[in-house]
């Protein structure tokens, strides 16, 4: 299995194909519904936070005593679809979540040569073991929906939509394609 390190760049991303499983090591940032709404509203101020970075659609539980982080799996990506084109336009390079994306998002991923990864859904306890550090970055008042910087090691991912716009749906014969 391929291991990839952050910061990701177009060259690394260009090699990854939809359906491929990879292990990611490095820095990622959590952001979900409310953080997306704010990021898009303040886009000019937040460009540096987004450019060349990876957003993980995740709102972890509170951190148990003695642990780095609580349960921290992916949330449903499609709720972020309406905000994604704007973030990609200022240089967001990758997203991690679960489930399908809209046709528009898929096209914009292709246009910017970005990438969408799937993380094992509903496995927040298992994924928390791959997170080695966390730090609050922005929007503290949002609680679990705030932006946290996470240092991950060998975080297991599957390429959902690759930089050429190919989707795992194309190689998967299930109802994914029918919906």
């Amino acid at each position: 299995m391929r291991r990839i390190l952050t910061p990701l760049n177009k060259e690394i991303i260009g090699k990854l194909k939809a359906g491929e499983e990879v292990l990611l090591t490095g820095t990622i940032y959590t952001a979900r519904d409310q953080a997306h709404k704010r990021l898009v509203k303040e886009i000019s101020k937040r460009k540096n936070l987004i450019k060349n970075q990876i957003i993980y659609y995740c709102g972890p539980t509170n951190t148990p005593r003695g642990k780095v982080i609580g349960s921290a799996g992916p949330t449903t990506s499609s709720r972020m679809d309406e905000f994604t084109p704007k973030l990609l336009s200022v240089g967001l390079i990758a997203m991690i979540g679960k489930g399908n994306r809209s046709k528009e998002v898929r096209q914009v991923i292709k246009k910017h040569k970005a990438i969408y990864f799937l993380a094992p859904a509903g496995c927040g306890a298992l994924l928390s073991k791959k997170i080695k550090a966390q730090k609050l970055i922005a929007y503290k008042d949002l609680g679990p929906e705030a932006i946290y910087e996470l240092k991950v090691k060998d975080f297991p991912l599957i390429v959902g939509i690759d930089s050429k716009g190919r989707s795992i749906d194309d190689i998967s014969y299930g109802a994914r394609r029918a919906t």
Partner: peptide, 21 residues
């Protein structure tokens, strides 16, 4: 297997099975 492993880790380490509690 990942789902079953996740359940075991959650039980053993007193971690939420899913972050969406």
């Amino acid at each position: 297997k990942a789902i079953i492993d996740n359940a075991q880790i959650a039980r053993r380490e007193k971690l939420a099975i899913c972050q969406d509690t």
